[in-house]
């Protein structure tokens, strides 16, 4: 998964063509840490999606700019526009279902 931050978020996510997934996480968020390996696993199954993660401890303002104020949150962008938004109580199965939907897989 590509580490995104203040420096590269615009180029890698907002100005990127196609589907980009961003996993907003923090090492202090236990549910996020549980989820992360499952998201990494999904990366192998959805080759058409660029998988990124964003540590909110270092990029708080950036996350808030995307209207993310709670963890875990996963956003999927298509050509820079939000198309999927999952927050708080969702499972990796929910995420896989959403990814299937947007990729048409």
């Amino acid at each position: 998964m590509l580490e995104v931050n203040k420096e590269n978020f615009e180029a890698e996510v907002l100005n990127s063509k196609g589907l980009v997934l961003v996993d907003f996480w923090s090492p202090k968020c236990v549910p996020c840490m549980e989820l992360l390996p499952h998201v990494q696993e999904l990366e192998g199954q959805f080759a058409g999606v660029k998988f990124c993660k964003l540590n909110i401890l270092e990029n708080r303002r950036l996350a808030m700019g995307q209207k993310v104020m709670g963890l875990p949150t996963i956003l999927v962008y298509k050509d820079g526009e939000k198309v999927v938004e999952l927050s708080k109580d969702f499972s990796h199965e929910d995420l896989a279902a959403k990814l299937k939907e947007v990729t048409g897989a």
Binding site: S26, K28, C29, V30, P31, C32, I56, L57, R60, K67, V68, M69, G70, L71, P72, T73, S87, K88
Partner: peptide, 13 residues
């Protein structure tokens, strides 16, 4: 997840 939370350790930061 946009300001409403039930988990302080997750979201305090």
């Amino acid at each position: 997840g946009k300001g409403v939370s039930y988990c302080a350790t997750c979201d305090a930061d």
